[in-house]
Deep mutational scan, measured.
Amino acid sequence: DIIVVALYDYEAIHHEDLSFQKGDQMVVLEESGEWWKARSLATRKEGYIPSNYVARVDS
């Protein structure tokens, strides 16, 4: 799995977006363009995230 960590807070604009806080970790489910589908490890919610707001966690 690709794990990313939030670099900034993000408040969902559309209902399919995923809100998150700086430091939150998410599993990337699908990478396509600038918006990635991800699942929050904390809340288990899924939605689209702006890929420029996150960084990959080296395992």
Rank of each mutant, 00 (worst) to 15 (best):
D1W: 14
D1R: 12
I2S: 09
I2R: 11
I3R: 07
I3F: 08
I3W: 08
I3S: 03
I3N: 04
V4H: 05
V4A: 05
V4P: 00
V4C: 09
V5N: 03
V5L: 07
A6M: 04
A6D: 00
A6H: 01
A6P: 00
A6K: 01
L7P: 00
L7F: 03
L7V: 06
Y8H: 09
Y8Q: 10
Y8L: 09
Y8R: 14
D9V: 04
D9T: 09
Y10N: 02
Y10V: 02
Y10M: 03
Y10Q: 01
E11S: 10
E11C: 13
E11K: 12
A12K: 06
A12S: 09
A12Y: 02
I13T: 12
I13H: 11
I13L: 12
I13R: 13
I13C: 14
H14F: 09
H14K: 10
H15S: 14
H15W: 13
E16I: 08
E16R: 14
E16Y: 14
D17W: 14
D17A: 12
D17H: 15
D17T: 08
L18H: 02
L18G: 01
L18N: 01
L18W: 02
L18I: 08
S19T: 08
F20G: 01
F20R: 00
Q21L: 12
Q21P: 02
K22H: 05
K22Y: 05
G23R: 02
G23A: 03
D24F: 02
D24N: 04
D24E: 14
Q25A: 09
Q25N: 08
V27D: 02
V27S: 06
V27W: 10
V28K: 02
V28F: 03
V28L: 13
V28C: 05
L29K: 04
L29M: 08
L29W: 06
E30H: 10
E30K: 09
E30S: 11
E30Q: 10
E30L: 10
E31P: 09
S32L: 13
S32K: 14
S32A: 11
S32G: 14
S32F: 13
S32Q: 12
G33V: 04
G33Y: 05
G33W: 04
E34C: 15
E34K: 12
E34L: 14
E34H: 15
W35Q: 07
W35C: 09
W35K: 12
W35Y: 11
W35L: 07
W35S: 06
W36T: 07
W36L: 13
W36E: 01
W36Q: 03
K37A: 05
K37E: 03
K37H: 09
K37P: 05
A38C: 12
A38D: 00
A38N: 01
R39K: 09
R39P: 00
S40Y: 04
S40T: 07
L41T: 07
A42W: 06
A42Q: 10
A42R: 15
A42S: 12
T43D: 08
T43Q: 05
R44V: 06
R44Y: 14
R44G: 15
R44Q: 14
K45C: 11
K45S: 08
E46S: 09
E46N: 04
E46I: 12
E46L: 08
E46A: 07
E46K: 05
G47P: 00
G47T: 00
G47I: 01
G47A: 01
Y48L: 10
I49G: 00
I49M: 02
I49H: 01
P50E: 02
P50I: 03
P50N: 10
P50M: 07
S51K: 15
S51A: 13
S51E: 04
S51M: 11
N52A: 14
N52M: 10
N52F: 10
N52Y: 10
N52K: 13
Y53A: 10
Y53I: 06
Y53H: 09
A55Y: 09
R56C: 08
R56I: 12
R56F: 12
R56P: 09
R56H: 09
R56Y: 14
V57C: 11
V57D: 07
V57G: 05
V57H: 07
D58F: 10
D58N: 13
D58G: 12
D58Y: 10
D58M: 11
D58C: 13
S59G: 14
S59H: 11
S59Y: 12
